[in-house]
Design a protein around this nucleic acid. Sequence first.
DNA 1: ACTATTTCCTGGATGC
DNA 2: TGCATCCAGGAAATAG
Length: 281
Amino acid sequence: MPELPEVETIARGLATRVIGDVIESVWLGQKPEPLKSPAAEIARTLEGSRIRAVHRMGKHIVFDLERPKTSKRRKAETDDNSSAQWIVHLGMSGRLQVSETNAEVVKHTHAILKLKSGLELRFVDPRRFGRLSVATTGNFDAGGVEPLEVELEKFTALFRGRKGPIKSALLNQKLLRGVGNIYADESLFRAGIRPRRRVNTISREQLRRLYLAVREVLTEAIALGGSSISDYVDADGEEGFFQLKHRVYGREGDPCLVCKTPIKRIVIAGRSSHYCPKCQR
DNA sequence: ACTATTTCCTGGATGC
DNA sequence: TGCATCCAGGAAATAG
């Protein structure tokens, strides 16, 4: 469930702790590993690299790496070869923890990076929906556009020619990246649009409201450190507080905060979707 | 070219 | 108390 605001919070927290540090060695867990790249390639790319930056792209955490200079002679234009990226997708239950070496290695730890500072960066993921990969080219592209960067015109264009429910389109990472189930529901509530509404029946004005709602919800959620439901905590082990601001998500049967009508829950594309039948049309 | 459905996975909650 | 069943969800794969 980490979505854009939670991933942003985690990436910021990690940045303050590991930027400038050097990855000395990498341990990757046993057989069914949550890896997208081959284990050997991940280890080879990470080991010896310096962490230059940590940022978020959609729901991915991206570590920009500077690979060690080889002692061998290199061609003139090898600048590109010195950069690479480590990409972490937390899935549902993934966590990245900065730990002391002597800290207990908890169950479901799938990767441990030993850093030069003496700290360890550990990837823990009970449900194993998370994924680790490397981009040796250093130009990873998550696809889709950033909701907080895209302009209204481009946002509107994303939905052109689509017929499915607006909720499904919002969750489609190839269109908009970073919005997940919670923020899709919260955005649709603020925009006054039912999750099942077909994209091609939504007016230009309503799309503009949706655009503003998505940005508003994500911005507020980032400011509050994300939503802590189930066991989400950020890189410092701190909980977020946006769950206290949820107006529909997880509020099935509770009165709408605007009109007191009980919030409904339906299933769209296998996802529970919450909305107010009176405020949203 | 889209859209809908299924699959992966485990811990916590619920039911009998 | 104990055991079975259900549910949560992102994204990839599969099917239509």
